[in-house]
Simulated scan of single mutants.
Amino acid sequence: MTAQKGKDLLLKIHNGTTYETVAGLRSRRLAFNTSAVDITDAESAGRWRELLEGAGVKRAAVSGSGIFKDQASDATVRSAFFGGSILNWQIVVPDFGTVTGPFQITALEYSGQHNGEVMFDLALESAGQPAFGVL
């Protein structure tokens, strides 16, 4: 597999009809995590930590930052955050696949310099099981 362009990693939000790319994003990140369940006891071999297979809580986290453009997707993001809504999102990873599922916006930040553009930072947390699709 050859190197991929970062701009091809897309974050999309379902607007009720179709998935719409969140406008103005310059950087995006997708992370999968699971918590470990420690089952170590006094009889563990060599006193090495033991983990319970398949027992941890799984989660997906998405973050992004970009420029504020006042597009329809920006309005959808704002209303989802202030409404505390859990919406369907899709993350497109080039030459890998798509991750689609329910996510909630957990952080929305705006910033700007007096001589620059308005920027925003966005963080999402999975609110259910995401689905993986091959491209």
Rank of each mutant, 00 (worst) to 15 (best):
S63W: 07
K12L: 13
S73V: 03
L25C: 13
Q113E: 15
V57Y: 05
F132C: 00
V93L: 08
L52F: 07
I13V: 15
F32M: 13
Y19E: 06
F120H: 10
A3L: 12
G84Q: 07
W89N: 09
F68V: 15
L9G: 05
R26Q: 14
P130L: 02
G133M: 08
G128V: 01
A107Y: 01
P102M: 08
T100P: 05
R49A: 12
R78A: 00
S73L: 02
T76A: 06
W89L: 04
N88M: 08
M119P: 00
E109P: 07
F81G: 01
L135K: 03
L25Q: 09
Q90Y: 06
N88Y: 03
S126L: 02
I105Q: 00
V77K: 00
G101S: 05
G16S: 11
N33C: 08
D74R: 00
L11C: 08
D8C: 07
L108D: 02
T40M: 02
L124R: 01
R59Q: 14
N88T: 09
G54N: 13
I13N: 00
N115Q: 14
N115Y: 12
T106F: 02
A42G: 14
E125V: 04
N33V: 13
R29I: 07
R49K: 15
I105Y: 00
R26M: 06
T100D: 10
S111G: 13
I105K: 00
G128P: 00
G101K: 04
D121G: 12
I91M: 08
F120P: 08
W48M: 13
S126H: 04
L10W: 09
A23T: 05
V134E: 09
A61R: 14
T21R: 07
A23H: 01
R29G: 14
L87P: 02
V118E: 04
S79H: 03
F96Y: 10
G16F: 06
D8E: 10
T34H: 09
D121E: 11
V93Y: 08
I105S: 00
G64Y: 04
I13K: 00
L135I: 03
E117T: 13
L51T: 13
V118T: 05
N115I: 12
S44M: 02
G56Q: 12
T18H: 09
H14P: 07
F32V: 11
T98R: 14
A23R: 02
T2C: 06
D70M: 07
R49F: 04
Y110P: 04
N15A: 02
G128E: 03
L11F: 12
S65D: 14
R26I: 05
K5W: 12
